[in-house]
């Protein structure tokens, strides 16, 4: 459906119960764990914002399989972090000289959260971007 839920809300003016119920976050990683995961990748170096394009669904129909793609011109590696998964690390892509610094995969998200992409550039600097992904918990489909 091309109509997003937000548009549906605006259009209908009625209540669309999009239940974005946070699921059991007792298991979710701490902000500290996210920092640690990023530091392990960057060695604690500063990270500039921008220069990384992360494509994620605004609303994922099911957290089990969320298609994502990422690209960062000039990058040699890109790490994907899911800030509220039990473990924040998702995957790290490494690009050789023949590869375009871009990749797509499908990931698991344990609820609504921010997904971060950190890119290591050829010159050793780091860049990042972050996307919010809502994960719906439905009664039937999800």
């Amino acid at each position: 459906m091309n109509l997003s839920r937000r548009q549906a809300l605006a259009l209908g003016g009625a209540v669309v119960t999009v239940s974005l119920v946070p699921i059991d976050f007792a298991m979710a990683a701490s902000d500290e764990a996210t920092k640690e995961a990023i530091n392990a990748f960057t060695g604690g170096a500063d990270i500039a914002d921008g220069g990384v394009k992360l494509t994620t669904p605004e609303i994922a129909e099911n957290g089990n399989t969320v298609p994502i793609s990422v690209s960062a011109p000039g990058a040699v590696s890109i790490m994907i972090i899911a800030t509220r998964n039990p473990n924040p690390g998702v995957v790290t892509f490494n690009f050789g000289a023949m590869a375009k610094p871009a990749a797509a995969t499908r990931i698991r998200l344990a609820g609504t959260q921010n997904v971060i992409a950190v890119a290591k550039m050829a010159d050793g600097t780091f860049r990042k971007t972050s996307n919010a992904v809502k994960v719906t918990i439905g009664g039937c489909g999800g």
């Binding site: 790290t92 050789g96 990931i107």
Partner: peptide
């Protein structure tokens, strides 16, 4: 010669799918 590698954690979905671009 390595073109593309992925270090994978459990948060990658079942039946893992990877897509990348390359030139030769």
């Amino acid at each position: 010669t390595p073109v593309f590698t992925a270090d994978i954690q459990p948060a990658v979905s079942s039946n893992p799918f990877f897509q990348f671009s390359m030139k030769v």
